[in-house]
Design a protein around this nucleic acid. Structure first.
Lengths: 233, 233
DNA sequence: CCAAAAGTGTTCGAATTACACCCATGA
DNA sequence: TCATGGGTGTAATTCGAACACTTTTGG
């Protein structure tokens, strides 16, 4: 047996790019209009093929960077889709990655780009191939992750209010959460620093800003404390 | 842009085959001795390349069947490994799958096979390439799954005792569990049927056999009850 | 002064944990 | 009869869930 007789396949990476719209209080996906056949003109995830000189992870980072200009976001692998007929143009084995980004970090850079657009997950357009299943699986990953890792903060600005944080979790879980219980739990983690500054756009009283203390999280992790934000019903 | 200029890659599947040794009370892996270069002669996961006429899932099932003769076990995808240099022989993108099987279902068929052998996860031989990382990731998947799905029963014979079930969970979690609390929780799920028969090999008194009632599990799932066997410390 | 959003504690029930002795039987 | 492993219940605690009013301030 040698490696020569073995069939080779196109390997692709598709990125589910999650953002959180702090105004609409909705999780959104950054989609692109596909500019080549098959399915040209339809909306799709940001994707591309894996080249010879890059790993899967590197391909995912490249695709993310090309669309968003962000370099310090590291996509997480979700699942690999390998049905024979999933892409009618050719057999393509595609690995999906998801990334969490702050919408404000990039909305200027894609502002003029008519081929990229944010869509709320509850109102996605029709997607090509099996991209809708990729989205479903990535959402499941996100919901699982968000319970055991402080990834929610990657979707929010540096400074955020408790109300915004809770709105985010409600958007992810698709469920109303009790305000007092939520704040109690968050505060008990001691991972947030309350700033002196207030956000005063959405109320007259104003809401204090908080900041996620990443160093404290790393510290707790080293000491064997695990993040847990399971808001079970 | 056309699909013609794009580099194509070898796509492989590697299977982490979990078994549970009811005597040693250990989770084991079925490994094979690799019979081609590179790394010929070393132990490795059961693997193979993805052919043109099969999906990734089908490739995993085929590889599992070729080694074990089992048809009604469906491997679950774990993770895809795509570093450029992971296989020194050629660039191979490999998706790992894990499967849970009953050791007794197959130990006769691999009994004479000197190129396949069960190893306890705590005493694995050196594995080729990044197969040790595949094992780590699959174990993490298994530990996560076992909390929310009744997959443990796939590792046990049809009839098993409470002690055996508890030993299994202790082997998976690598932690001692309180006997009374464990049984209380198991019984409260109402997913087990107590049989009249006793296992009398390991004690004079004998231990009652139980059977997992799959239909009842399906029934509960339909009614919105979720399996949960989280033995948090 | 009032509308609108932020912020704050307590109580109750359920679930989890810790813990120690009796039972059945083959050798 | 005794050594061995199987089987059982209760009390203490913790954790999650439910729930309503006060505060601030810009208009």
């Amino acid at each position: 047996m040698t490696y020569n007789d073995i069939p080779r396949h196109l390997a692709a990476v598709d990125c589910i790019i999650f953002g959180y719209d702090i105004i609409d209080k909705e999780i959104k996906l950054l989609l692109v209009r596909r500019n080549f056949e098959p399915a040209k003109g339809l909306w799709s995830l940001a994707g591309g093929f894996v080249m010879d000189d890059e790993s899967l992870d590197e391909a995912a980072s490249r695709i993310l960077f090309n669309l968003t200009g962000l370099r310090n976001v590291f996509p997480e692998q979700s699942y690999t889709f390998g049905n024979r007929e999933r892409d009618p143009g050719a057999r393509v084995i595609s690995t999906s990655y998801y990334a969490l980004i702050k919408i404000l970090d990039i909305d200027h850079s894609i502002g003029g780009n008519k081929d990229a657009e944010w869509f709320p997950i509850s109102g996605l357009p029709q997607l090509i191939f099996d991209h809708d299943e990729m989205v479903r699986k990535a959402l499941a990953c996100l919901r699982r992750q968000v319970k055991i890792n402080p990834v929610g903060f990657e979707l929010l600005p540096e400074k955020f209010t408790m109300v915004q944080l809770q709105d985010l979790y409600e958007a992810i879980y698709q469920r109303k959460i009790d305000k007092r219980n939520f704040r109690k739990k968050i505060v008990s983690m001691k991972l947030l620093e309350k700033l002196d500054e207030k956000e005063k756009l959405t109320s007259k009283k104003g809401a204090f800003y908080y900041r996620f203390i990443k160093e404290e999280y790393e510290n707790q992790k080293r000491n064997g404390f695990y993040f847990n934000l399971d808001i079970g019903k």
